[in-house]
Simulated scan of single mutants.
Amino acid sequence: MGVAIIPALLALAEQRDDIDGDAALTLITLGYEIAGRAGLALHATACDYHTSGAWNALGVAAVAARMRGLSPDQFRQALGIAEYHGPRSQMMREIASPTMLHDGSGWGAMVGISSAILAEQGFTGAPAITVEAAEVADIWADLGGRWVMTDQYVKPYPICRWAHAPIDGVREVMLANSLTHDDIAGIRINTFHEGVCLFQGVPETTSVAQYSLSFAVAAQAVHGRIGLEHVSGAGLCDAQVLAMIDRISVAESDAHNASFPNTRDADVQITLHDGRVLDSGLVHARGGSERPMPEADIITKFEEFAGPVLGAARTTAIRDAVLGLADGSSCLADLRAHLYDPVES
């Protein structure tokens, strides 16, 4: 959700006086709460699995409505417009043919902002059924009392979330037993149906690598981490990773199917060349509400991914500006200044 809500907030802020940290974080929370509940409502009522662009459109519309001072009726119209025009794209189509569509998030953000502006100008929309339908009333009943934002996750890896539990399972078994990839004869992954549908072969592009399962697990097993260099360029034809793919098998699990999409679990068994079989047990992916990532780990992840592109000084400045929103030492303009400057070549 943040991939749409935060860029939309930054764009909308260009037409506002400066926004302090408390106001910025309130707007982000508002966007997450509206988008998250709209997503839950869509999952509960739609017959197939849609991408996050659909509900991100409503979250962005809510942020824009708040920032532009829309009336309650204009806000209602904005949500109706955003839901109607939001990209209800089918997730499994993207899984079957990974490209640069990436969940329709960009279109969701554009629809959300456009919907608020249209409503402000008097355009009307059909009532948002993911908000107003009787069958989803329970999802909205505790708005402001229960925070669905706390149920979201931070990704440790630049890979589809559905692959994270298998990656973590391999990571943890290898760390606990001081293994290297040379010790491994085979890896069996048991996970839910949608995870099994992730790309299983050798990816030719970064987009395919990000929606892979066996390749991602192989990269973790070989390198002990998955960085940008592993899902792009020469990393896509790493001979050791490609050899490891051939040792990985994937199976669908009824138990993991039963818990999806509330959780995205897996278990793995690693067979060693000496004949031992090591079992991970049930694995909840790191970064979610079941296994939150410590703040220090989140910061380290940001620095690891941003540093090579932005440089150490600018990465540190962005980090400090983000953290300063919470303690009052920075405002949104401080962050925007560091984000908008061109990247030095």
Rank of each mutant, 00 (worst) to 15 (best):
I226K: 15
A312V: 12
V154Y: 04
C160K: 12
R88L: 05
E120Y: 01
P98S: 08
L198W: 02
I113Y: 05
I81Q: 01
M1E: 13
D168P: 04
Q74N: 07
A337I: 03
R276E: 09
T29K: 00
H230D: 14
A251I: 10
G80C: 12
L272P: 09
P292I: 05
R37Y: 14
D320G: 04
M174R: 00
L30V: 11
I245C: 12
K155L: 09
T191F: 06
A128T: 07
C331I: 03
Q220E: 08
V231N: 15
G186C: 11
S345G: 03
T263E: 14
H223N: 03
G281R: 08
F215L: 10
Q15G: 15
L40Q: 06
L10E: 07
E120V: 03
A128E: 01
G169Q: 12
S232D: 07
G227Y: 14
R66E: 07
H164A: 12
L213E: 06
L30F: 01
P156L: 04
E94H: 15
F215Q: 07
Y84K: 05
P7V: 09
R286Y: 06
P87G: 08
G2I: 06
S178M: 10
M67C: 06
I248H: 05
H338I: 01
K301R: 09
P342L: 11
T124L: 15
P342H: 08
T316G: 04
V170G: 05
L79N: 13
S115N: 06
T45S: 00
S249N: 13
E295Y: 06
E304F: 08
D254P: 11
A137I: 15
Q210S: 14
G169K: 13
Q121A: 09
A141L: 13
D238W: 13
D320N: 02
L179K: 09
L175F: 15
T316Y: 00
M1G: 15
V208R: 15
V131S: 15
E14Y: 04
G281K: 10
Q152P: 06
Y157D: 10
I299F: 01
A251T: 07
G287W: 00
L25D: 02
N257S: 07
A137H: 10
E83R: 03
G80F: 04
S207D: 05
L335R: 04
E14W: 00
A38M: 11
H273V: 05
R171A: 14
G108V: 13
Y157H: 11
C47G: 13
S105G: 12
F199T: 08
H85D: 01
V3Q: 15
L12P: 09
L12I: 15
I159P: 03
E194V: 07
A38P: 03
E344I: 12
R291W: 10
L143P: 08
Q152V: 06
A82V: 00
V148M: 01
M293E: 03
A321V: 09
G21W: 06
T51G: 07
V60C: 00
S345W: 05
G275P: 12
A13Y: 05
Q269N: 05
L30E: 09
V250S: 08
S115Y: 00
N190L: 04
V343I: 11
T51Y: 03
D73T: 11
D254Q: 04
A8Q: 14
C160W: 00
P294W: 03
E194F: 03
S212F: 08
I5K: 14
